[in-house]
Write a protein that binds this DNA or RNA. Sequence first.
DNA 1: GTGAAGGGCCAC
DNA 2: AAACGTGGCCCTTCAC
Length: 593
Amino acid sequence: MEVYYQLIRSDQELSRACEELSQSNVLGLDTETSELDPRDGILRLLQLSNGEQTYVFDLLAFAEMGDLRSNKALAPLRDLLANDRQIKVLHNAKFDAKWISHHLGCELGKCFDTYLASILIAAGGSDRRHSLADVAQFFTGIELDKTEQVSDWTQRDLSASQIEYAARDAKILLPLYEQMAERLRNDGLEKAAEIEFSCVTPIAEMELAGFFLDRERWLGQLERVQLSRNAVSEDLQEMLSAGVSQNSLFGRAEINLDSQPQVATALANIGVPIQDTTKAWQLQPLAEKYPVIDKLLQYRAIQKAITSYGENILEYVNDETGRIHADFRQIGAPTGRFSCSNPNLQQIPHDDAYRRCFRAEPGNKLIVADYSQIELRILAEFSGDPQFIDSFVSGKDLHSMTAAQVFGVEQDAVTPDQRSFAKRLNFGIVYGVGASRFGMMTGLSTSEAENMMRRYFGTFRMLDAYLRESGSTVIKDRIARTASGRMLKLTFDENDKQQVGAARRYGVNMPIQGTSADILKRALRLFHDQIAGTSAKIVNTVHDEIVAECRVDEAKTVSEILRNTMVQAGTEFIKKTPIAVEIRVSDDWSKSN
DNA sequence: GTGAAGGGCCAC
DNA sequence: AAACGTGGCCCTTCAC
């Protein structure tokens, strides 16, 4: 592919190039950086292409005059990048958005992300990779050579090959955009794509902002856990080798307590009836009878706390900011949910002892907001079941209402036990639980569980009908969709009953889980737009929750904005069932306080 | 020595 | 025996 490019190194060239580029509706945009983290490296090149002409801005030339963020000569470029009049086409826009925000001091405006588009079109399929080279090849047939990607972008004089490579990556985005935009339309993915694209900047800003972790508190908690560690592991070691003549000249044979096979063998040796696995939920019933099981469960909990939620997380605290800047994958699951890593801020234990370590910096407050039972409300909406919807409209406690219906008692007479059954049933339904599994988790026999589920579906007739209908449709069409049109293709062998069953559950669950993701992403965008000009920043998001941080004096205003935008996002998709958001202003992430 | 796979367990 | 959806991280085991 022939690329015409112009290298921009002076103020005059820059303003002329921006003037020229501002004539187009769509621009390809790419950057070349020296590192992966914007705090660690320089933003060397920024390439913008209108398809005819590609401009390569050498930002090192402008950096020589001082900080890029305060360089007034870059104003035309900032305006071009931040405006919503022109669609900027990027591949993995979050990456560039972070560099642009951190180094140029402006937020990326309206964008089209060919990486996210490719994942949406693949709809859960894994037969295709989503690098720019792969996506370009697949959608346009153009082969890209990426060997210069990892070349040295810090040297003063770049090679012609480097600059050409940079220009070409920006130019390819335009034909790619044409192809992919049409494909999104044909696949009914326009709205889902719109949600994803408009969520890029909020996520980029969230990652840059980071989440403050109180190192002292975290170490304090870790210390408390470690205190009990040695005693528990010694006791367990002792109990596991009791009655077994494993003593050698060197003393008792040590069992690796972290080795599942070794522990299982040891348990068998001392006469504890162990099933095929040693999962906690299987061991739990044995804990009362066998002290060694109780000890094992204690050990596992402590070990988990130390290894997963110990000092390793502190290594992610950034030296400059004192905050954790985790990686969020926008389409982490095919359902549309985020995933998070390095570290995973979506799996911090719910226990206040951990959550209170994540806090607002001095002078600030955290605003913690989560959707109340969003997936059940989505299910109510989809099924149209009047009883189910009513239980949300009335604003009464859903689980006791369900219990009242299922057990045939007045709502005031529902026992905590009955409510707990109803709660577990409500949640199980979303995932397609069967009677055998439900019995297992509640301690009921399978036939008792069957009876209870029959009463449940007898009460919520349309819910039952919806779940059946949804199940047979996804098996017939091999496709599931969320409210935004986000799509999941199902692959299974129709002769394999297990595969069909798994596909059915997955296909029934996906629209529910995925619509929840649609709503959250929409809310992130709405909230992001409305906090412009305030001190508020989004600092974390966990499936149905948004955490923001702002100055104390703005906390009340920001919490109102957060509630309103989350409710608004919800009502864009959910019309018949009310949306409720639970919100608190707090010094830290714990429930109390 | 390194990486994949699988068990186990945390979140929603 | 079990079939309740999505993820990431830590550990052990085992193959290369």
